[in-house]
Design a protein around this nucleic acid. Structure first.
Length: 742
DNA sequence: CATTTTCGAGCA
DNA sequence: TTGCTCGAA
């Protein structure tokens, strides 16, 4: 249920950015000949042509809709291009879309607090940037950005007016004396700039809503699609909401909305105004009641959460109809596939974001083969997550068996069974959650990253060599909980219980390899590096004991090595499993994480490398011209570029001469990733010199997810950027010059 | 039991 | 905390 939060301010500038038919765009970027053709993305296609999950706007004109089957789409649009979602490990693999979403986020997160709301949606809090733009006399706004902003749909302006362009221009101009409108106008400019930047660097178009809160921004972001933006001035909120069907509001599309319609006769948001807050609370409880009351009035205090990374990773698959699983072997096989994908994603998260998942959850759907429709819920089960592919696979299967016992237990029904009364599995998913940043030092960034290189690990000591990098992770008590190992070809997590290391050796090693600066010992406060006290965690009492499943909520959980009476399945550790026991899987990973990372960076750099000339000429409209069916060649007709510049130049600019202000460094230079830094194995001096970055050089996505202490240290160490050589003019009036006509 | 596969929020 | 439901995309 929604919870009502008080508005912290009535003049925030919030944007909601929504990618246009995102999966289609990702596929069209890969296959440019599909651009401008009616296209849809389907997952699987052996059953009725697959299910559509994204539909291009060209295809929508034919009546093609999401949730149609491929075959249905072909009926209404015979020429539709159906592209399949990549399949890996026998299931749909959404990785390319997730990564494409990250590309977008890394651009959108440069101007304010950023919340990744879904794979293709982002909220931005642009309040500070908008305020700064009002205070600053010389905003660096290019002509094309200004033009793009002027195409905004500003709600509440007289739409039947002959000259809507002029109206919009006036709204953006000084004739509009409402301070909040000025802030929104700045927001619209910022979003226009961001949308163009997204297009230039990713080739994706998006639409956006700009308003004073998340609810309104979200409501209108899809109102004008594709590739357009919509602004909700404060004064037009009521006109927007009153006639709006109640189900259009976020959170009211489901049962709550239906209840409002049926039980209260509320069909539009305006209808809701008739009910007092007390009455709504009486019907729906305190929180929801207040939320409804506020929602009807366009009041919404939800903050934009500064979160650009997902909180969990899940991998699942359904087995509908006759595909329902009926054998334990099949369940195990699919759990292995799902777990392998999950493990890959966890490794990627660890490398890219330095986060570890703490909990593994298994969920399944089952049904009973019988005439009676007793569709009981298969209980989901969780356990502490242990890194390593085979660990996750084993644990997932254990969790399934625990759930299964509970599921069939009271019914004493044999599973699996093809007999009536037996049960079948129609869905399986494994979820890794409680993702936490690796424990970070409170003192030094240098040590934080240094620890990744200079710390050694039990495995190395066993091998008597140090080709691996390692890093230990501690819990809140400072005890080592995991070791992260990587030698470039493989990596994994090792639990301290599994480390057979004698403590003297550890200490000796630690002494040898730690920095002189802090007394020869890096403690965990300085970046999770082994120290004498914490090294002691790996002591003789603890290092050999098998503490597995110790946190399971009930005793029904089987131990992995214990023979399972249900299945007669016995687990023994093969040599390859022993390797996995150490979180290492030599057969996997052909490309090192480093190589992958570099490849990724190169790719995105290459894509964004455009000549300055191209950049100046870019606009979202021109982008469409570029791909329109009539112009087969991507050309930028120069003659239309300069149209309308005279009117545009009056907007938010103190003088025409400033329009030429270029050469300001872009904020999008990236370092490959933080982990790349950590792998360089530099000495302290070299590292500290490497850390004097310019503000724009650090990928904000990475920056935001760093531990707060590190962020603060980074900020302090960042060289202040030189302001562009702009002439100083005071006051906001320079931004809101009267339009030519007045 | 043919939309699939994700994700997050809130509740008990 | 876990398990579950709801909502959304």
């Amino acid at each position: 249920m929604p919870v009502s939060r008080p508005e912290t301010s009535d003049s925030r500038v919030i944007a909601h950015v929504d990618m246009d038919c995102f999966y289609v765009q990702v596929e069209q970027r890969k296959l440019p000949h599909l651009r401008s053709l009616p296209t849809a993305v389907v997952q699987y296609n052996d059953w009725k042509g697959g299910g559509l999950i994204a539909v291009s706007y060209e295809a929508r004109k034919f009546g093609v809709e999401r949730s149609m089957r491929g075959d249905e789409a072909k009926e209404v649009c015979p020429d539709i291009q159906l592209v399949q979602v990549p399949v890996g490990r026998g299931k749909a693999d959404l990785t390319i879309y997730r990564n494409a979403g990250s590309e977008v986020v890394s651009i959108l997160s440069t101007k304010g607090r950023c919340e990744r709301a879904s794979i293709d949606e982002v909220y931005l809090d642009l309040t500070e940037a908008a305020q700064a733009m009002l205070v600053d006399s010389s905003p660096e706004i290019s002509e094309t950005v200004r033009e793009e902003a002027l195409k905004s749909h500003v709600l509440g302006l007289d739409l039947d007016s002959i000259n809507i362009r002029e109206k919009v221009r006036n709204w953006f101009g000084v004739n509009n004396t409402d301070h909040r409108d000025k802030l929104l106008a700045c927001g619209a400019l910022l979003i226009a700039e961001l949308r163009m930047k997204v297009l230039e660097e990713t080739e994706f178009t998006c639409s956006a809503g700009i308003a004073h809160n998340k609810m309104l921004a979200k409501l209108v972001s899809g109102m004008n699609k594709p590739a357009q933006q919509t602004v909700v001035p404060f004064s037009s909120v009521k006109k927007l909401l009153d006639p709006l069907p109640i189900k259009k509001m976020k959170h009211l599309g489901g049962k709550l909305g239906t209840s409002l319609q049926i039980d209260l006769g509320v069909n539009t948001v305006g209808d809701l105004l008739k009910y007092s807050e007390a009455k709504l609370q009486e019907y729906y409880g305190t929180n929801t009641g207040t939320w409804l009351w506020n929602t009807a009035r366009g009041i919404n205090g939800e903050e934009v959460q500064g979160r650009v990374l997902t909180k969990s990773h899940g991998s699942g698959k359904t087995f509908p109809g006759s595909r329902a699983l009926r054998k334990m072997d099949a369940v195990e096989k699919w759990l292995k596939e799902l777990s392998a994908e999950l493990s890959d994603r966890l490794q990627a998260d660890l490398e890219q974001n330095k986060r570890l998942a703490k909990t593994l959850t298994l969920h399944a759907n089952a049904f009973q083969v019988s005439d009676s429709d007793s569709v009981r819920k298969f209980p989901s089960k969780s356990c502490p997550l242990r890194y390593g592919v085979s660990k996750i696979q084993e644990d997932a299967f254990m969790l399934f068996q625990a759930g299964l016992r509970e599921y069939i237990g009271p019914f004493k029904v044999k599973f699996p069974s093809t007999q009536p009364g037996g049960w079948r599995i129609t869905g399986l998913s494994v979820i890794a959650s409680k993702l936490e940043a690796i424990p970070s030092g409170t003192r030094s960034i240098t040590n934080y990253f240094n620890s990744l290189d200079h710390n050694c690990c039990p495995l190395d000591m066993l091998n008597d060599k140090c080709t691996h990098e390692a890093h230990s992770f501690q819990n809140e008590k400072g005890e080592a909980t995991h070791w992260y190992l990587s030698d470039g070809d493989c990596s994994g997590i090792l639990e301290p219980e599994k480390c057979v290391v004698d403590v003297e050796h550890v200490e000796e090693y630690s002494m040898r390899n730690s920095s002189q600066e802090n007394g020869g010992v890096l403690d965990h406060e300085n970046g999770g590096v082994l120290n004498q006290e914490n090294g002691g965690v790996l002591n003789k009492e603890e290092n050999s004991h098998e503490v597995q499943f110790r946190q399971y909520p009930n005793s029904s959980m089987p131990s992995p090595n214990q023979p399972n009476d249900d299945l007669g399945k016995e687990k023994t550790l093969s040599s390859s499993e022993c390797q996995n026991y150490l979180g290492l899987d030599q057969t996997k990973a052909k490309t090192s994480p480093m190589e992958k990372e570099l490849a990724c960076t190169m790719e995105s750099k290459g894509r964004s490398t455009k000549s300055p000339k191209d950049k100046e000429m870019y606009s979202i409209e021109r982008y469409f011209q570029k791909w329109s069916p009539c112009t087969s060649k991507p050309e930028y007709p120069k003659n239309i570029l300069e149209s309308n510049t005279s009117s545009g130049s009056q907007l938010l600019s103190s003088s025409p001469s400033e329009l030429k202000m270029e050469g300001v460094p872009h904020d999008n230079l990236r370092i490959g990733s933080v982990s790349e830094m950590g792998r360089h194995g530099l000495g302290l001096d070299e590292q500290s010199s490497m850390w004097s970055y310019e503000a724009g050089e650090i990928d904000p996505v990475i920056f935001n997810e760093l531990p707060v202490e590190i962020q603060n240290e980074l900020r302090a160490s960042i060289r202040p950027r030189k302001r562009a050589n702009i002439c100083r003019k005071d006051s906001i009036d320079h931004y809101f010059l009267p339009s030519k006509g007045s």
